[in-house]
Amino acid sequence: MSLLELKNVSVHYGRIQAIHNMSFTVEEGEIVSLIGANGAGKTTTMRTVSGLLNPSYGSISFMGQDITSMKAHIRVVKGISQAPEGRGIFPGMTVMENLNMGSYGRNDSSGIAKDLERVFDLFPRLKERSKQFGGTMSGGEQQMLAIGRALMSNPKLLLLDEPSMGLAPQFIRQIFKIITEINDQGTTVLLVEQNANQALARSHRAFVLETGSITHRGTGKELMANPAIKEAYLGVA
């Protein structure tokens, strides 16, 4: 049984179809990447998995349970957590309040305390800045906060939408290193990226999205070796 399975999923915005008949799985313990250009449907796919968008056709299941029509806030409790595109930090809340929002759906205070410790271990910077307002932090710090906050629900599946967007190169490397570390600790990761180099190098498997359809699939290494992908996404002729 796959952790996450999308079967023939189509998504529409009004009359415009953004995702065409998409099927893929994410197995427990993997890092899986969706790579593709702007407008290929990466974020739409993520929002469909997290439940902010509903598919017009097809089905989604998580740990064997059909979640196609499950509300987004319940999917969080079930174990799907998303660090959204643009980070989605609550600007008027402190770092600590933002982290507390991540555990909003939980009541096990000892488990929450343990996860907070884990987040502070991964991102010591967040501990130093815990009283600072989220809106006043740098882009890299906000991305750390977005990932840390997403971990506060103790997810089985972590959805990361463009974690490297707008970050300086040394931050990008650091973020990807931490993503691998989170995965080593047992959290499955579904990653959307434009930075295909880093994403493919860190992923067990990956899918290439073009105009709402999956055009290539394979392991990270296979896709990195594929000449068409090299040319289109890796900046190598």
Binding site: H73, G88, F90, G92, M101, G102, Y104
Partner: peptide, 20 residues
């Protein structure tokens, strides 16, 4: 906190498990 989260960013609030 849920009220403030929905006020600041309803979609992200939902992703935190807030029932909007």
């Amino acid at each position: 906190r849920g009220i403030r989260a929905v006020a600041q960013d309803p979609d992200t609030a939902t992703l935190m498990g807030v029932n909007k």
